[in-house]
């Protein structure tokens, strides 16, 4: 019996019997189906070419659906981007679903559909997966775990230790859009259509960047902790100082508006479709051009450089021409009012 959109997930859907098979055949395979997955083996057998990048991440976001995306988009893009930032071409991804009893089939279909769309966009195959159902109240609708593997592009060596003084720091576009979208919704703000998550698969862009500049030292996606966290991690790992220019940071007006009202600093807000690159100075302009030519990098900018005289620190040249330190973010972001 095929499941339709008015149905809901039951404990039997995770029990491995006939009802589980129905979920697989009428919901999951129609969205995810490809020859490798349709084998329905215990695991996928795939070919790789040389050095392999391997990553995993779990997704527990609320709300599940938000402007410009949903939890499924985050899961696939997050894993694709984690592979891309290691200098890999993403190849295969696994999808583990933990569903709450009562979760609407219609919502599940929407999420799976987006996951397939994003996988196609990134050129990655969903080759294996798992579904479990937990009792009402034991999870928040749906949790997703993904793992991905990819081929390291030969001749590249992404490593924070390769960062030297005098390199340029690039970002692929505006900061804070994803977190501002989610947090605005949580705190009673209504946002215009122009503010939505930046969630996107960046592997196409990073491959193009590495083609023109194989000695890019670092690629990093500024997710939780935002730009401030990434810059501090790289400063710490490389022993270089990082000096960025406040005036060069691309920040959309809507994001700044949310930050002004709720008291956030955009440097600490999570992004889901941005890439920070540490690039040798003589290659910075050509890398920038490649980023700007990509659909997810049109607002790319050079935001700063690495320096020798402030080892391990991140500095921000402020709008009034002073320099202050930017440190690691602390804990959850909650609105300040006083």
């Amino acid at each position: 019996m095929a499941l339709d959109d008015t149905d809901k997930i039951t404990l039997a859907h995770g029990a491995g019997g006939k009802v589980s098979r129905e979920l697989m055949e009428s919901v999951i395979l129609p969205e995810f189906g490809n020859p490798m997955l349709e084998q329905l083996h215990d695991g996928a057998i795939v070919g790789m070419s040389g050095q392999v990048a391997f990553t995993t991440d779990s997704y527990v976001v609320q709300p599940l659906f938000f402007a410009g995306g949903n939890i499924g988009k985050l899961a696939v893009c997050g894993t694709v981007n984690d592979l891309a930032m290691t200098g890999a071409v993403p190849r295969y991804i696994s999808v583990g679903l933990i569903l709450e009893e009562g979760f609407p089939i219609a919502d599940l279909r929407r999420i799976l559909h987006t996951m397939r769309e994003m996988a196609d966009k990134a050129g990655i195959y969903i080759v294996t997966g798992d579904t479990k159902v937990v009792e009402h109240g034991k999870c928040d609708g749906i949790f997703i775990n993904t793992a991905g593997i990819g081929d390291i592009i030969p001749g590249t060596a992404i490593a924070p230790q390769a960062v030297r003084p005098g390199m340029k720091v690039l970002i692929s576009g505006s900061i804070g859009d994803h977190a501002a979208t989610i947090l605005a919704g949580r705190h009673g703000l209504e946002v215009p259509d122009t503010l939505h998550t930046d969630c996107a698969p960046l592997s196409g862009m990073t491959q193009a960047m590495l083609m023109v500049a194989p000695d890019i030292a670092v690629l990093r996606d500024p997710t939780r902790g935002g730009v401030a966290a990434v810059l501090n991690e790289i400063a710490d790992a490389s022993g270089c100082g990082v000096l960025i220019d406040e005036a060069a940071l691309p920040i959309h007006d809507e994001v700044q508006g949310v930050c002004d009202i709720l008291g956030f600093d955009p440097l600490y807000l999570a992004n889901e479709g941005k890439c920070i690159a540490f690039v040798p100075a003589n290659e910075a302009e050509s890398v920038l051009k490649v980023m700007q030519a990509n659909e997810y990098g049109s607002e790319a900018r050079i935001i700063g450089e690495t320096v020798a005289d402030a080892p391990g620190q991140v500095g921000l040249r402020t709008a009034i021409g002073s320099i202050r330190v930017v440190d690691m973010p602390l804990g959850n972001i909650v609105p300040r009012i006083c």
Binding site: A184, G188, L189, E190, V191, P192, T194, L195, E254, D260
Partner: peptide
């Protein structure tokens, strides 16, 4: 309204 963001 501020920068397109609205609130009561």
């Amino acid at each position: 309204e501020r920068a397109g963001i609205e609130r009561e």
